[in-house]
């Protein structure tokens, strides 16, 4: 191209420098950087493509009924995803019910009350808790939490009388939806704490000062002024936590009981989308089973994408710099 557009009479120096500019180390470097940036788009697109095409067998056979059927019988080739969707949603809901009040409380303390140095030190420790691998939470779940709940739950159920509430009825074997929810709550709480703390710290100082100057107590200032201002960011942190809880595999698999049934009681064993993929994928006997498991992966992918997107928008709405 370059040679064609340059007349023969042109000074060769100009042509050489033009060619050199095109192929210079500088633009070559830029091209490499750009290719890598585009590679991320390619990898993500390929991920979606593979999930979509590799689940076609299942999608063609079951259609949308896949999401509403309740039986899971690999031998008969009959697959329904509802028990797993149910288990995933229930364990995540339990996790949030436990972790949100607790996490927001801790975030308020760290952002509003603790001296900055102590706050930083404690946040550091809480963030280390977030770095603990999930399989280790599973280990503690199996060998510490399950025996502990085996002592505590019968007392609460029979002696305190919580057993008459339907969601706490029925026999308890240690592994259950409740157990998985408790383990998940410990795993997601650090996310809620550290993101909410940052959002609270981004609330302008004037607001606090104005409220205190009007005679509000420290708590009233926090609860009626600071928290409402940071409301959306806190919601964002909860969504992030939910996205993580939905996709969490190991800790749930180890304590949920792995039973594909829809139970009324939280004390009954259940199953989750991620757990069934982890347990059955390597041993799947038919192409159809692999395909259904991949479709479950697609469902999980869709759920987390929506939640993550919503979380990011909410956090950005409160404090632009926190989202980075």
């Amino acid at each position: 191209m370059a040679t064609a557009s340059v007349p023969r009479t042109a000074r060769p120096v100009v042509r050489a420098s033009y060619v050199r500019r095109i192929f210079s180390a500088d633009s070559l470097a830029q091209a490499i950087f750009l290719v890598c940036a585009l590679a991320i788009l390619a990898v993500t697109a390929l991920l979606v493509w593979e999930l979509w095409t590799k689940s076609s067998l299942s999608r063609d056979k079951f259609g949308l009924t896949f999401l509403t059927k309740t039986d899971w019988d690999p031998v008969a080739g009959n697959f329904g995803a509802l028990p797993f969707i149910f288990g995933t949603l229930v364990t995540s809901a339990v996790a949030l019910i436990l972790a949100v009040p607790f996490g927001v409380g801790a975030a308020i303390f760290l952002a509003e009350l603790a001296p900055p140095k102590a706050s930083d030190a404690m946040t550091f420790l809480i963030e280390l808790l977030a770095a603990v691998p999930s399989v280790i939470f599973g280990l503690i779940g199996i060998f510490v939490l399950v025996p502990m709940l085996n002592v505590v739950v019968p007392v609460l159920k029979d002696d305190v009388g919580l057993g008459i509430i339907p969601i706490f009825s029925g026999p308890f074997y240690g592994v259950s939806l409740l157990t998985a929810g408790v383990v998940l709550s410990v795993m997601v709480a650090p996310f809620i704490i550290s993101v909410s703390r940052e959002v609270l710290l981004a609330v302008p100082r004037d607001l606090r000062e104005a409220s205190l100057a009007l005679g509000a107590t420290r708590w009233e200032t926090t609860w009626d002024v600071v928290v409402p201002y940071a409301r959306r960011g806190i919601m964002g942190s909860v969504f992030l936590a939910l996205a993580r809880a939905l996709g969490e595999t190991m800790a749930v698999t180890m304590v949920v009981g792995n039973t594909p049934k829809i139970a009324r009681s939280l004390l009954a064993p259940g199953y989750s989308i991620a757990s069934v993929i982890a347990n059955e994928f390597a041993e799947a006997t038919s192409n159809l089973q692999v395909s259904t498991l991949i479709e479950l992966g697609l469902v999980l992918f869709g759920l987390t994408i929506v939640l993550n997107g919503a979380a990011r928008l909410l956090i950005m709405a409160t404090a632009g710099k926190v989202s980075q």
Binding site: I40, I277, F281, L300, F301, T304, I305, L307
Partner: peptide
């Protein structure tokens, strides 16, 4: 961010 939010088990399927 989207890729970062994908559950690890789904990356395993990939």
């Amino acid at each position: 961010d989207l890729l970062n939010g994908v559950p690890s088990i789904v990356i395993g399927i990939f």
